[in-house]
């Protein structure tokens, strides 16, 4: 320790260079390249303002593509004409809304000025009712069954979840083929009934299959959420019930269901929110809402009013969007409220 007056022992010899070292050096050089502009910025604006640099790119895109449209959406609803750019559009006040809402009788879409809109509203209503209850029941039963499995749980969970990951177009086409005139179902059907049915061209059948396919498509997601809720119920409650000699039937109604209820309510509202927005798979499956307008839903009405007709009525579409948005907002608030209640 004589040569080093700073008190540190003399340095050892450098290690020989290894392949990992060489890789590290390349990575380090690459990182320096990326770091450079950020380091300059940090020197310029100081450490305390650096978080802004990190949020800015994301915030900019978010503002442009989400936040600005949200603000503009209301503007569109109060303008008319067929111009796309908002500032070229004439202000029409509540005209779009009054057109949407002018009806002889609200129970009869045919008596409304925009009968297609009201047909879509009614279709969406029944779809939402059937889809939400159907999915909830199927997902609940599946979650309960999965939860009591000791072996093969992961396997079956994966099977039930798999359709969730498919694209709506793929799901629609798979089922369209299954239900086709030459499809597998008709092969069975013809055997039993003696004749083939073109399922998607009959009003009741098509509505049934739209809901069925939708449940088939999405139930795995809700199963997972309910399953997570079930697994959060402490095991010892059941052990206590077992010692008390509680029957399984009672266990379900008196323990599982009440404890799961907050979870189920959140799932139900989530289902309602998602059901109101039905479009993709139903649109492809029914060739655009057919037969006739039996499966025309709200989003389809908005999409077609704004983008798929020769006269593009952006104002009318936006007014319908705003009405739907309000309905969704109410549901979202209910969900937040339920979520908060479940936490307490």
């Amino acid at each position: 320790m004589t040569a080093f007056d700073d008190g540190y022992p003399p340095p050892g010899r450098a290690r020989p260079m290894s392949a990992a070292d060489r890789r590290d050096r390349v990575l380090e050089a690459g990182m320096r390249l990326l770091e450079w502009p950020f380091a300059q910025l940090q020197r310029l604006i100081g450490l305390r303002r650096m978080p802004w640099v990190f949020v800015l790119p994301n915030m900019a895109l978010f503002t442009i593509f989400v936040f600005v449209p949200v603000l503009l959406a209301i503007g569109y609803a109060f303008t008319g004409g067929t111009e796309l750019l908002l500032w070229n559009r004439p202000f029409v006040g509540l005209e779009n809304f009054s057109r949407l809402l002018s009806c002889g009788s609200y129970l009869d879409p045919a008596s409304c000025e925009l009968d297609l809109f009201w047909t879509a509203v009614f279709n969406t209503a029944w779809y939402t009712a059937f889809n939400a209850t159907g999915t909830l029941v199927v997902a609940l039963v599946t979650a309960l069954v999965l939860n009591r499995l000791t072996r093969g749980k992961a396997f079956f969970r994966a099977i039930f979840f798999y359709p969730v990951l498919l694209s709506p177009v793929v799901v629609a086409l798979v089922w369209k083929w299954f239900l086709a005139r030459n499809g597998l179902l008709n092969a069975v059907f013809a055997d039993l009934m003696g004749q083939r049915t073109i399922f998607l061209l009959e009003v009741l059948w098509s509505r049934f299959w739209v809901v069925y396919v939708s449940i088939w498509f999405h139930m795995g997601f809700y199963t997972l959420i309910i399953l997570a809720g079930l697994q959060a119920i402490p095991r010892d409650i059941y052990e206590a019930a077992l010692i008390d000699g509680t029957s399984r039937w009672r266990q379900f109604w008196r323990l599982t269901l009440p404890l799961l209820m907050p979870n189920l309510l959140v799932v139900l509202v989530l289902l309602l929110i998602r059901s109101v927005q039905v479009f993709d798979e139903a649109w492809v499956l029914t060739d655009g809402g057919g037969p006739g307008t039996s499966n025309t839903f709200l989003v389809q009405f908005i999409y077609e009013t704004a983008f798929a007709t020769d006269v593009r009525l952006y104002g009318l579409a936006s007014a319908a969007s705003v009405l739907m948005g309000l309905a969704l907002l109410v549901l979202t608030l209910v969900q937040l409220w339920l979520g908060k209640k479940a936490e307490n």
Binding site: P69, L71, L72, Y76, L298, L328
Partner: peptide, 13 residues
């Protein structure tokens, strides 16, 4: 917030 609510203005952007 679903896309369907802001379809039109998002397209304008």
């Amino acid at each position: 917030l679903p896309l369907s609510v802001i379809m039109v203005p998002a397209f304008m952007v």
